[in-house]
Computed example of a mutant assay.
Amino acid sequence: MSLHVTDPVRIGTERLSGGRRLGWAEWGPVDGVPVLLSPGAATSRHLGFGGETVDGLGVRLISLDRPGLGASSPRPGRTFRDFADDIRAFAALRGLGRPLMVGNSQGAPFALGCAAAGVVGALAVVSGADEIAAPCFADALPGELRRLVDLAVSDPAAAEKVFAGFTAQAMWDMVMSGSPECDLAVYQQPAFVAAYRRALGEAFAQGGDGYARDTVLAMGHWGIELSDIGVPVDLWYGEKDTGHSPDQGAELASRIPGAVRHLVPDAGGAVLWTHAELVLSTLLRHAPVS
């Protein structure tokens, strides 16, 4: 399939309390329905999705750099609650109200934290990283991943030191070696390669600490009260995606009141790009009526 990856049409930073910066990039009309993007692991604001559909759908897509990645200031020791507080402040500064949100891959638990905190009005989790430290997955993880999860739970500081040694090239190699053919057909297209490589480079521009903190949080016990989520949540997984959730989000969906789980036939982890219009149009059904 042909993939349409576009550069942002607007880019900038917001100053949060204490002077920290939060980097953002936007696609679509400035007066469109605000949809925040919490990107996947070690990717910056520059890797968006749905560039060919946002104008037609009337979506103002805003991708955010998490602290310590890209253009966002570090926030050592941050938590999912801290991230939700940052997004609440960002939305207030930009006049976004309670925006819709998309959480992709490792960005999913951060987005779920925002939903649990009441910061966003609805959420789409796309190829979302699951809470693999949960006891129900103890026997479902391969040995090396199990070891890293145990370390993230028992000694988060030691785990952060391990993950801080990652680089943009190491992340690229891991994704390319561990993806099914249906995903590689997307990831190896020249336009995607250029955008993804740029996003990886920017994410590691400040070093590996931002990625390391993200990964320790995502791999450990989340501490997010998923049962408190009171906004609509759709979960999207490709049928061939086994890398983000051992059961493709089945158990995760059961923990979120009213969540709807979608399994996309013949798709892998690249659903965010292969089915962007479907994800966004479904999310827009939950937008407030103006």
Rank of each mutant, 00 (worst) to 15 (best):
T215K: 01
A157I: 10
G220V: 00
D173V: 02
S179A: 12
V175I: 07
R197E: 02
V193C: 06
F163N: 00
Y187C: 13
F166G: 08
K161Y: 11
G178Y: 08
G207W: 06
Y196A: 05
E181A: 15
P180W: 15
M174Q: 13
A203F: 05
A194C: 11
A212V: 04
R198S: 12
D155Y: 02
A194V: 14
F204R: 05
G220H: 00
D155E: 05
Y187G: 12
A205E: 10
G201N: 12
A185D: 11
G220E: 00
G178V: 15
A185Y: 05
A158V: 05
D214K: 01
A212E: 06
A159L: 03
A164D: 08
M174H: 12
Q206P: 10
D183H: 07
Y211H: 15
G210V: 04
Q189R: 07
G220C: 01
D155F: 04
G210P: 09
M219W: 02
P156W: 00
P156L: 01
M176I: 02
A205V: 07
M171V: 14
E160D: 03
M174N: 09
C182Q: 10
A191G: 10
E160Y: 02
G220D: 01
K161Q: 14
A212F: 10
D155L: 08
P180E: 05
P156E: 00
S179G: 14
G210K: 02
M171K: 13
F204W: 03
R198M: 11
M171I: 15
A164Q: 09
F166A: 12
A191R: 14
V186Y: 09
E181H: 06
L200N: 08
A157S: 09
A212R: 07
V162N: 04
D214T: 03
R197S: 07
A205K: 03
V162Y: 04
D214V: 02
E160A: 04
R197T: 04
V162D: 05
G210E: 04
F166D: 11
F166N: 13
L217A: 10
A194F: 09
A218Y: 00
Y187D: 14
D214Y: 04
Q206H: 13
A199G: 13
G201Q: 05
M171R: 10
A205Y: 02
M174L: 13
L200E: 07
G208H: 11
G207E: 08
F163T: 01
G178Q: 12
V193P: 03
Y211I: 11
T167Q: 04
L200H: 15
M174T: 14
E181F: 02
K161T: 15
D173N: 05
Q206K: 15
M171W: 12
V175N: 05
M171N: 11
E160L: 00
A191C: 11
A185L: 06
D214F: 04
L184F: 09
W172D: 14
E181K: 06
R213I: 00
D214P: 03
W172L: 08
G207F: 04
A164F: 01
C182F: 07
A194Q: 09
R198T: 15
V216L: 01
E181M: 05
Q189W: 08
L200M: 10
T167N: 05
A170D: 07
G165M: 06
A203N: 06
T215Y: 00
D155K: 01
A212I: 07
Y196D: 09
A195S: 14
L184C: 03
A205P: 08
A218W: 01
T215G: 01
F192T: 07
S177A: 14
M174V: 09
T215S: 03
C182I: 13
